[in-house]
Write a protein that binds this DNA or RNA. Structure first.
Length: 421
DNA sequence: TCTGGGGTCCTAGGACCC
DNA sequence: TCTGGGGTCCTAGGACCC
């Protein structure tokens, strides 16, 4: 393993051959807080928290100085200020973070097109093809860190490994402002001593279940029979964690992935019980969702309403439409109906949200309906009647047809369905 | 004055189909 | 009718991540 700290000093010798560590994970250090400090350099070295000052707000980001007091992201602001009363609280500026994020991703894109943003401040890179041009992963990572520092004034940490998961773990161990390369041959030696929560997907609940089996480290889990894991945490999680614990992670670096859902939600400063106020909020949220649907070229088949009551109990209610939509009023109307069914009149609401799910490319919708046994030719019939006759699956199949595609027996056009709504 | 907002993935039960 | 089994879709909830 070779590690480099913020001064550029190598902690151990650079390996002669680290080309096996071809996947880089780059993660900006305390990103939002660091961006704010660019504007307020006099606050460097002080505990700084980024977040709103509202009664129900949480910490969005914190500098390492604030973290020393036990302040972390997602912590209620009230608790954070109790732990660190002299922290400086700054309002977030998402437009700035987005601009810096673009700049950083652009720098990454100069090395390889195989850049997969994971969030606003981190990304995977597959540098296999870049090695002949720019040198081994260690050299590429060093160059990237230097460029980011020089051009943005921000620091980034990088992990390099043979797989995504190990690279991400390596970057977290390199933080802040560090670089850690884990050659493939050293993967298990690096992995197995780590605490079990280092595994991607092990949070508090899973940690608790695994602790009941006596498992505390990644190595413990690796040596546990799969069936015992299945019984404790379910099929998918057991297989995935077991694979990860042996350093096996087949996921490739994929530059773009289709969105699966688009939603917006708000937490009110004080619980809201007024039906008109809630419905106005639904329309506002639905409008933002619909705008993003259209911008992305999507239509949604399913509308989901999310409610959090005054006691923090949270429910979701969803409905799949006969005809997909990207229209705010349609989303809003459906959400309103769900709200009326789900909320006992007069109940106070803490949070309300609207989400569009089951996204389809706009234009691929309902080009035709068909059935295995008989044609369907009555365009006067409503979509619900189609669903009743052929099952809701018929609408699904119709929705999944591509533009221009038409089954031999298809008879009901999207215009037909739309006009019947 | 104790809990944001953006998401993804998994599970489980019932309906329905073959 | 003392009644299977596999697959898909829909819905609700929960765990998890940044």
């Amino acid at each position: 393993m070779s590690k480099q700290d913020g001064s550029g000093r190598q902690v151990t010798a650079q390996p002669t051959d680290d080309t096996s560590a071809r996947i880089l994970h780059l993660d900006m250090d305390a990103f939002f807080a660091s961006v704010e400090l660019l504007e307020r350099p006099e606050l460097r070295g002080r505990p700084v928290i980024v977040g709103h000052r509202g009664a129900r707000s949480v910490v969005t980001a914190a500098t390492y100085e604030a973290r020393r007091y036990g302040v972390n992201s997602a912590m209620p602001m009230a608790i954070a200020l109790r732990r660190c009363p002299n922290a400086i609280v700054l309002e977030p500026h998402y437009d700035r973070y987005t601009a810096f994020s673009r700049q950083v991703m652009g720098i990454l894109g100069d090395v390889t097109p195989l850049v997969e943003p994971l969030s606003i401040d981190e990304a995977f890179l597959d540098v296999r093809g870049a090695v002949p041009l720019f040198g081994p992963p260690f050299a590429i990572a060093t160059t990237l860190r230097e460029r980011i520092r020089r051009e943005t004034g921000l620091t980034a940490s990088v992990g390099a490994a043979a797989t995504k998961f190990v690279a991400k773990l390596a970057s977290s161990r390199a933080k802040p402002d560090g670089l850690l390369v884990v050659p493939e041959a050293e993967t298990l030696g690096f992995l197995h001593p780590q605490p079990i929560t280092a595994l991607w997907g092990v949070g508090g609940a899973t940690e608790e279940r695994l602790a009941r089996l006596g498992l505390r480290t990644v190595g413990d889990l690796a040596r546990t029979p799969l069936d015992a894991l299945r019984a404790a945490i379910g099929e998918a999680g057991a297989v995935r964690l077991h694979e990860l614990s042996w350093g096996r992670d087949p996921r490739a670096v994929t530059p773009s992935r289709d969105e699966k859902s688009i939603g917006h939600e708000v937490t009110f400063e004080r619980d809201v019980a007024d039906a008109d106020a809630l419905e106005r909020e639904l329309l506002r949220l639905a409008t933002r969702v619909a705008e993003r649907l259209r911008r992305g070229g999507w239509v949604a088949r399913t509308v989901a309403l999310k409610l959090r009551f005054g006691d923090f109990r949270t429910i979701t209610r969803s409905r799949t439409l006969a005809e997909p939509t990207d229209v705010a009023e349609r989303l809003s109307r459906e959400a309103r109906g769900l709200l009326q069914e789900a909320r006992p009149a007069g109940t106070g609401i803490r949070l309300i949200g609207v989400r569009a799910e089951n996204l389809l490319p706009a234009g691929s919708v309902a080009r035709g309906l068909w059935d295995d046994d008989e044609p369907w030719r009555d365009a006067e019939t409503t979509a619900d009647a189609v669903a009743e006759r052929f099952g809701r699956g018929a609408l699904t199949r119709a929705s999944l047809l591509q533009p221009g595609e038409r089954r031999r027996r298809s008879a009901l056009s999207s215009e037909d369905v739309g006009s019947l709504d």
